[in-house]
Simulated assay, not measured.
Amino acid sequence: MAARTTSPLLTWTSLAPPLALVALVLTWGRHLSAVPVVIVAVVLGLAVLAAVHHAEVVAHRVGEPFGSLVLAVAVTIIEVALIVTLMVSGGKDTDTLARDTVFAAVMITCNGIVGLALFMGALKYRLIAFNAEGAGAALATVTTLAVMTMVVPTFTTSQPGPEFTSSQLAFAAVVSLALYGMFVSTQTRRHRDFFLPVGKDGEPLDDEHADPPTNRATYASLGLLLVSLVAVVGLAKVESPAIESGVAAAGFPQSFVGVVIALLVLLPETLAAVRAARRNRIQISLNLALGSAMASIGLTIPAIAVASIWLEGPLVLGLGATQMVLLALTVVVSVLTVVPGRATRLQGGVHLVLLAAFVFLAVNP
């Protein structure tokens, strides 16, 4: 008797995204009691895992470094939509929402995702290698974007406070889009080999995957990926009142809610980066992490610049002194990590300590 095969439409990774979307529709705008909050949290976790699976399917089909762009850009677009939605709806502390969210995304990606990927990869392979040229180019772009959009506003004098004038904000938006566009062109066309996985000897690694999925399977995974990401961000928003209550009960500042939601939104990229690291594809992990940081700035600032036309109230983009110190330390440590093109558990541990410092100081500013 022939063995029975499971239809791809009946796997949990295919059922989880629409289930999460249904949960989002049923819970959006409602006050949830304890039991529904727990159920939504479980569904949110399933949606995150499903997003990682479908992102890997699409990445396998299109190849690197295109695959790393899929998850980074998709998550960032939805993250931007969430920020703009919250700012339009108004409320407490929305004038710093964009800055806090983008800065949290940069610290989580450059220290959390990078550190975890390096640590997990080195834990299995001891000494891990990546392309210093590609990682260095990505880091330089992220640093320029972060300084131009979040450090410079603190020192401009045309507008009181850490804010841009309208012309300065427009300039920052154009520069952000230009830098992001140039990097994507470099990554996917002229110097694509800089962003491909390499071995300890610096030579490109052979592809160990099975045959690529069909076009039909790829399009199905792309659609389910987008559904998963919408559900992840939406359910994170649904869970935010419970998170706010938990943060208040713990005595943490209300701004810490943005850090928690940023952690939830970046979960798919984190899991995908760790999986790549466990397969000794460290360059893919770095592409995901630094690409996500770059997209978070390069797409968010232009979107906020356009939205500011009808948004009321100030738009604070400049970082405080403590945040600038953490950003400067992150850049220095990242440069020292990237330059050799190889890393051990120590480099991963240093980045994770920086993430811990960021989270601790967000709790105790």
Rank of each mutant, 00 (worst) to 15 (best):
I309A: 14
A248L: 07
P268G: 10
G251M: 08
G258V: 10
L235Y: 05
V259S: 12
M294N: 13
S255P: 00
V259E: 03
V260H: 01
R278C: 07
V306Q: 09
P302K: 03
M294A: 09
S255C: 00
V260M: 14
A248G: 09
A248H: 12
A295S: 12
I301P: 04
G291K: 04
E239T: 06
Q283T: 12
L288T: 10
E244W: 00
V265C: 01
P268R: 08
T270N: 04
R278V: 13
A303I: 08
A272R: 08
L266Q: 06
L263F: 14
A262D: 08
L271W: 05
L290S: 03
F256Y: 13
N280D: 15
E269L: 13
V274S: 05
A262L: 09
R281V: 01
I309L: 15
G246T: 03
A250W: 04
S255L: 03
A248D: 10
A307E: 06
A305S: 14
A249W: 08
V306M: 11
V259A: 14
Q283P: 01
S296Q: 12
P241S: 08
T270V: 06
S255M: 03
L290H: 06
V260K: 02
A295T: 11
P253S: 08
V259P: 04
W310T: 15
L288N: 11
S292D: 13
S308N: 13
I309Q: 15
I261S: 09
Q254E: 15
E239I: 06
L286C: 01
A295V: 11
S245V: 05
N280R: 15
P302Q: 05
V259Y: 15
R281I: 00
E269M: 10
Q254N: 11
T270P: 00
E269G: 15
T270S: 09
I243F: 02
I284A: 04
S308D: 11
I282M: 10
P241M: 07
E239N: 01
A262Q: 07
I304E: 14
L264T: 09
R278F: 08
S240I: 00
V257I: 09
L286H: 06
A250G: 12
N287L: 06
L290T: 06
A303E: 05
L286F: 12
P241R: 10
R281P: 01
E244Y: 02
G246R: 00
A303C: 15
S285K: 13
G251N: 08
V274E: 03
V260E: 01
G246K: 00
S308I: 07
L263N: 02
G246Q: 00
A276G: 10
E269W: 01
A305R: 09
S308Y: 05
L286R: 05
I301V: 15
P302R: 03
Q254L: 05
